[in-house]
């Protein structure tokens, strides 16, 4: 695979495209996140259980931050999956409601749905679960800025002063 992140929109197969997108996201890769299925505006994914990701050593329950990162990424992917011409997105806000702790030793699964794609903002909902979506771990509502890199050059965050 090419190291050039700009190639993420190049593949014709949507699943390949989002998988490439995940591979270009170091934190998503570090979490071991996978995208398993994709439909227009909908994505399914998972994070396998790993001891490194434990947030409560007493119970072995995975950390809330893992779910935050996973769902943030998956929601962003759903927003991209809703687009005819994929572009970059950035999270504006993200709200998570926890219903119960994740079951230790089990992968966290999730599905995300971009229910409204606007010209500049995409709205996405997601649910995380470990068996079926009927018994959710968490619900998420998020908003994304569409075409977030517009006008910003590669390495924009490396400059010390705003021009």
């Amino acid at each position: 695979m090419s190291d050039k992140p700009t190639s993420y929109a190049s593949s014709d197969d949507p699943l390949q495209r989002v998988r490439a997108m995940i591979q270009f996201t170091p934190q998503a890769k570090a979490l071991g996140m996978e995208v398993t299925r994709i439909e227009p505006a909908r994505v399914w994914g998972l994070v396998p259980y790993r001891e490194e990701l434990i947030g409560d050593p007493e119970t072995g329950v995975i950390a809330g931050g893992v779910i935050t990162t996973f769902l943030d990424t998956l929601c962003g992917t759903a927003a991209v999956a809703a687009m005819e011409h994929p572009t970059t997105v950035a999270t504006i806000d993200l709200r998570i409601d926890y219903m119960r702790p994740a079951t230790p030793q089990k992968s966290v699964l999730a599905e995300a749905h971009c229910y409204k794609l606007g010209k500049s903002v995409a709205f996405v909902r997601a649910v995380a679960y470990d068996e079926t979506p009927d018994n959710p771990i968490a619900h998420v509502a998020a908003a994304f800025m569409v075409n977030s890199n517009n006008g910003r050059k590669v390495g924009a965050n490396l400059r010390t002063k705003k021009s």
Partner: peptide
């Protein structure tokens, strides 16, 4: 650290990581 990056182009920290830091 490099593994905290969410957008390698800018580059920027992953939003989830910032959220996770805040939660912790």
């Amino acid at each position: 650290s490099q593994h905290l990056v969410g957008n390698p182009l800018l580059p920027a920290l992953h939003g989830g990581v910032v959220g996770a830091l805040l939660e912790v």
